[in-house]
Each structure stands twice: as structure tokens, then as C-alpha cells.
Design a protein around this nucleic acid. Structure first.
Lengths: 130, 130
DNA sequence: CGAGATACTCACCAAAAAGAAAGTGTGAAG
DNA sequence: CTTCACACTTTCTTTTTGGTGAGTATCTCG
């Protein structure tokens, strides 16, 4: 599973660290929940846990916590705890988070633009096969 | 799981069909293997099955077939079978596939640019936690 | 005193995804 | 007649994911 010394160039001159990070990030951004949370936080600004949950229908507490933690670890969101009772925790996008949202716009736009093409391709493919 | 009439706007005015497709596509594009295959095909042009496999270390035959099929279904690659023996099958990116690769560049670039920032954020986070 | 609010965590389980390995069809080469 | 190449497919096993529901800490309100 390590390197293949016999295949000199696997692909290009890509720094494996960048590779790994891209995979990582993309896997996360691509993640259903991360994507939506970035959008919610972008559109509505700083929000607390329960508010986010309300705006992301279908998410479980577990996944919300998990996703938010992951985003925090990657520096995409800032988590602010107010030491009051009952607890109050607020989340907001960092500059990094905002910039990722923007970078991702290209893919969103692509998807919107080519919606029809992709649907047609799928239909064509499924007809030939099915 | 449908709408929340009591929360008038969950997020924006997004057509749920677009939503769904975007999630779908993004999940697929974001896929580790799809990303790499797009790159390989972009850099090296049309390639046959085994050649791709060689350039994507770690992928299993199953996943390669699966990913390629999915990409074909979405119109990202063209599959050409030459009726010879032993079999010869070639894959190449369609215009749609190329355009997706380009749209994705933004994210790649983002990742390269912010590699350091993210790594630092992770380190900081892990130190506080661990 | 007991309920309620908030932001979690934890344990358990089912489903889905992925890996590993062996099998398939066909014709040419040895 | 056996072997090999190629592009898969199939089966089996393992790993990863995600949902559910209960539990926790703390202070306030009725």
C-alpha cells in the first residue's frame, strides 16, 4: 500500500501533503452536512447550536456536533462558549470558512449550470442499460 | 422530514432538485477516486483500464470499475470498447468532465493556498484537546 | 421539590461502503 | 493443450457511518 517504485510517475508533481489535505477537505466539504452548515452560517451569521439544528432539517444532534467539531478543528468555524446556565454556545464562520465557501461556489455553479446535461446523460445511460 | 412550515426559511430560495443534484454530484466528485481519475485523465488523455489503475495506486479493480461507471453515467467520461481480444477499453474525459475539473480547480487552489493555515488550526485544536 | 432549558456525550445497532480474492470469456502465442 | 492478457464480475468479509435514545450538569422558575 506504500509506494510503487516500479511506476515512476503516478500522477504529476503533486505534493502528497497537498493531496492528502485536498482529499480530506474535499471529503469534508463535500459532506452533506458541512456544506449546508457553511451555507447557513454564511447566510445567517453567528448562530447557536439549536438554531443551526433548526435550519438544517434532518440532522441528528450527533452529526451536528461531529460536523461542527470537525469544522472547528480545521479552523472553519469559531466556537464561543458563554459560561451561563443553561449553556449558550455560538458558532460563526472564520475568514477561512468564508473563503472556502467562496471557493466552493465554482462547483455549486457548475452543478447548477450543468444540471440538465447531467440528468440527460443519466437518462441516456440508464435507458441503454436498463 | 419534509418542510418545516413553522420555520419559514430553512435556507434561501434553493430549488430542492438543484439541491439534491448538487449534493449528489458533489458527493461523487468529492469522492477520492473520482477526483484522482479526473486528474489522471486530464493530464494523460485517453487511457485504458489497466493504465488508469497503474496511475491510481491503492485503488481496487472493483472501485475503479464502479467509479468509472458512475462517471460514465453522469457524462463525465466516454467509454470506448474495441472489440478485440484481449479486450481493450479506453476512457477519456468528455467536455463536461473537463469543465468539472476546471470548476474544481478553485477548491484545489484553496487547499494549496491554505494548507498551512489548516494544518496550524488542526495542531492548535489537537493540542488543546489532547 | 420537580420540571425545563441547553449543549452535549455515550452506548448500541443497523446499514452501507470498501477491500480482498477468486472466477469468467476469448483468442493468440508457445 | 496450457498459459497469458485484459476488463471486468461475484462473493465474502471487514470497516466505516449514521441513527436512536438515554444520560449529564447546572441553574431558574413555578
Amino acid at each position: 500500500m506504500a509506494d510503487h517504485p516500479e511506476s515512476p510517475e503516478t500522477y504529476g508533481e503533486i505534493d502528497p501533503r497537498v493531496e492528502a489535505l485536498v482529499h480530506d477537505l474535499i471529503a469534508q466539504v463535500a459532506d452533506k452536512w458541512t456544506m449546508i452548515i457553511i451555507e447557513v452560517l454564511h447566510d445567517h451569521g453567528e448562530q447557536r447550536f439549536t438554531r443551526i439544528a433548526e435550519k438544517v432539517p434532518g440532522i441528528s444532534q450527533k452529526m451536528l456536533t461531529q460536523t461542527l467539531r470537525q469544522m472547528e478543528r480545521n479552523g472553519l468555524v469559531k466556537r464561543t462558549v458563554h459560561p451561563v446556565v443553561p449553556p449558550k454556545v455560538e458558532y460563526r464562520l472564520t475568514d477561512l470558512g468564508e473563503s472556502l465557501g467562496e471557493a466552493f461556489c465554482g462547483v455549486w455553479t457548475w452543478a447548477e449550470t450543468h444540471l440538465g446535461t447531467v440528468e440527460a446523460a443519466r437518462k441516456g445511460f440508464d435507458e441503454k442499460v436498463g
